[in-house]
């Protein structure tokens, strides 16, 4: 019986290795391991064996059965894998065909610039304040040391709605409003971005509507060197660590001293080129120490409190940073313009 089992094993293993598909392997399984198979038959004849022989042959029969089953399983897995592979091979596609498009939009370049500046100043502890675009003459001019008849009002000819209401010509009224809420005894640290309006005919460098972003810090012992330090930090983060700044005297009715901030020209590294008109410097923003009249009108004692303010035009910054050559591009909303700056 022992020989018969060995024989069966040899025979079965041979058939397994010869099987070329899952079906013939199934046949082998039924033939040898099925209920009517030869091994079952051998086991049935075990009654004739001696008490000693029975377990030996039983064990052997089980071993033979298991090794055949194992061989079939291994072979089956291999055949299935092969078949799957064949099937998958037939499913192959052209991976270079275009994918199903997903619509992706993006922010306006001015929004990107404004948010970049906002985040930069938030990092320095500034808040963001907003205010109305239709302003009172008081907040737009008078509270900012521009009384009626002041010559500097000419500098920013305005769109009036009534004698007392106008479209704000700068975002400075937001500063006046914010200071006014502090009862003259709390510090202010804010920036205010927003739309402003002036009586300009739209052309490549003028727009009757544009964006402004101003900043204000009022506290005890605010120094002009603080203004220089903050503007320097801003310029380096916004325009690159290798940029230098310089301040030079200027005039704004709401600050004294007043300065303009230039950054060294990136194109020529300060040597002078057409972009910086040969000066090596590019004007970026206006700034200064808050005028005592402005502080006083907002309820602060200018002997105790001082402050600095600055203001810039995001359009100008965008034009410098990205080489946009016509301010009207920001408001025409040509899709070919908008899409260019989605990564800005």
């Amino acid at each position: 019986m022992k020989e018969r089992l060995e024989e069966l094993k040899q025979e079965a293993l041979e058939k397994v290795s010869k099987s070329e598909n899952v079906q013939s392997l199934k046949d082998v399984r039924v033939e040898y391991l099925g209920k009517k198979g030869p091994i079952t038959e051998v086991l049935r004849g075990m009654g004739k064996l001696s008490k000693e022989e029975r377990p030996v042959i039983g064990q052997l029969a089980n071993e033979v059965r298991e090794s055949i089953a194992a061989a079939i399983d291994t072979k089956q897995t291999r055949l299935e894998d092969q078949e799957l592979e064949k099937q998958l091979e037939s499913e192959s596609i052209d991976v270079t065909l275009p994918g199903r498009p997903v619509r992706v939009g993006g922010p306006h370049l001015l929004t990107s610039i404004v948010e970049e500046i906002e985040d930069l100043f938030i990092g320095m502890g500034f808040e963001i304040k907003e205010g109305p675009e239709v302003e009172t003459d008081y907040f737009n001019f008078e509270a900012l040391n521009l009384p009626k008849g002041h010559p500097a009002r000419d500098m920013q000819d305005s769109f009036y709605i009534t004698e007392e209401l106008l479209l704000r010509t700068h975002t400075s009224p937001v500063q006046a409003r914010t200071m006014g809420q502090k009862n003259g005894n709390e510090p202010v640290k804010m920036i205010c971005p927003g739309k402003v309006y002036r009586r300009d005919t739209d052309d490549a460098t003028h727009s009757h509507q544009f964006t402004q972003l101003e900043g204000l810090l009022v506290d005890k012992h605010v120094r002009m060197s603080d203004l220089k330090g903050v503007l320097n930090a801003f310029a380096k983060q916004m325009f690159g660590a290798e940029r230098d700044i310089r301040l030079r005297p200027s005039f704004f009715p709401f600050t004294e001293p007043s300065v303009e901030m230039d950054i060294s020209c990136k194109v020529c590294e300060g040597r002078g080129c057409s972009v910086c008109k040969g000066t090596g410097w590019i004007e970026i923003l206006g700034a200064g120490m808050v005028h005592p009249n402005v502080l006083e009108m907002a309820g602060y004692d200018p002997k105790e409190y001082s402050g600095f303010a600055f203001g810039m035009g995001p359009e100008r910054i965008a034009m410098l940073k990205y080489g946009v050559d016509d301010i009207r591009n920001f408001y025409t909303n040509d899709i070919r313009f908008l899409e260019q700056y989605h990564k800005a």
Binding site: G125, E127, K189, V222, K228, G229, L247
Partner: peptide, 26 residues
């Protein structure tokens, strides 16, 4: 103050950061 500052030279002003009360911006 402006007269003194401009003749002294804005280039000669140091770079400092505000010392006053701090707030969390946001």
């Amino acid at each position: 103050l402006e007269e003194v500052a401009r003749i002294f030279g804005y280039d000669n002003l140091p770079y400092t950061l505000p010392q006053g009360s701090s707030q969390a911006g946001g």
